[in-house]
Amino acid sequence: MGQPVAWFEIAVKDGAKSRQFYADLFDWKLNYVEQMNYAMIDTGGEGIPGGIGTAGDGRTSGVLIYVVVDDINAALKKVGSLGGKTEVKPYEIPGTGHLAVFSDVEGNRMGLWQRV
């Protein structure tokens, strides 16, 4: 069985404008966490959860999906062996899991998520 997608993230330059755009477009309810400058997306029960965050200095705007893996370090090792590159080393989201970001052989960015 393949690995499921756990989360999606939209990185934007203008957070307030983009949050309003997506809330209006898709009727998403957004829970904005000011100290993180990040909005958790509630799609209404169907689909996968996600978030909208500001692309800070050095970050690219765009959409990332996060795929669940059992071992994030082993997955990144496999990324490298297949010609991809680690972009963001694994780090912990306290109490929930670890995430990392890689680029594939075409330069597309993807995320990895290891649950606690």
Rank of each mutant, 00 (worst) to 15 (best):
T54F: 05
R59P: 01
S18F: 01
K77P: 02
F26M: 05
G47L: 08
Q35Y: 03
F21M: 07
A39G: 00
R109Y: 15
I52L: 00
P4E: 01
L99D: 01
P90S: 12
I48N: 12
D14M: 03
L25D: 01
F26Q: 02
G44V: 13
I93H: 11
L112T: 08
R115D: 05
G53M: 15
L64C: 11
I41W: 13
V79L: 08
E34F: 06
K13I: 04
P94Q: 11
A100K: 05
K13N: 08
S61K: 11
V5W: 04
E92P: 09
K13E: 09
G2T: 03
D27F: 02
K13P: 00
V33L: 14
V68P: 03
V79D: 05
Y22H: 09
V116E: 12
V33I: 14
V33A: 13
T43N: 07
A74S: 09
V116A: 10
R59N: 10
Y38P: 02
E46N: 04
P49N: 12
W113L: 15
N31K: 14
I65T: 15
K89C: 08
P94G: 11
L76Y: 10
G111F: 05
M40W: 07
V105R: 10
F21W: 13
V69D: 07
D27M: 06
P90T: 10
S61L: 11
D70H: 09
E87R: 02
I72H: 07
R19Y: 02
G44A: 11
Q114M: 11
I10S: 06
D24K: 00
T86E: 13
P49I: 02
T43P: 13
G56L: 06
Y32I: 07
Y32T: 04
M1F: 15
G15L: 14
S81A: 10
D27P: 05
D14I: 04
S103D: 02
Y38D: 14
A39C: 01
S81E: 15
G83E: 04
A75I: 01
N37P: 01
W28N: 08
L25N: 00
G47V: 08
A6G: 12
R59A: 09
W7I: 07
Y32S: 02
N73Y: 10
D27A: 12
V88C: 05
V79H: 06
V63C: 08
T60G: 02
V68M: 06
D24G: 03
A6D: 14
G15I: 10
G53K: 03
S103T: 03
P4M: 05
T86H: 06
L82V: 13
V69L: 10
A16F: 01
